[in-house]
């Protein structure tokens, strides 16, 4: 059975894409801060990081 993949967090620079509920969505406008946050969260959650074509990041289960 293939493992189910879950979105753990969504990191965006656009406030229009910040919605409540699950998954956790974080608004970070500075690209460098985004990278730092992605790295820290990725390590803490042991997650894989995907950068979407629109520049946003999602953290998904490993």
């Amino acid at each position: 059975m293939k493992q189910q993949i879950e979105i753990l967090a969504y990191i965006t620079a656009d406030e229009n894409r910040v919605l409540g509920g699950d998954p956790l969505t974080l608004l970070v406008k500075d690209p460098e801060k985004q990278k730092e946050l992605v790295r820290d969260l990725g390590l803490a959650l042991r997650a894989n990081v995907v950068q979407l074509k629109n520049g946003d990041y999602i953290l998904i289960t490993n």
Binding site: K35, V38, R39, G42, N48, V49, V50, Q51, Y57, I60
Partner: peptide, 21 residues
């Protein structure tokens, strides 16, 4: 390419979103 990994031009994954990965 970006967060995408290709092997011999074939897409494998797009989970290399972090610079370190």
């Amino acid at each position: 390419k970006g967060s995408e990994l290709f092997v011999d031009g074939i897409f494998v994954t797009n989970t290399l979103g972090a610079d370190k990965s």
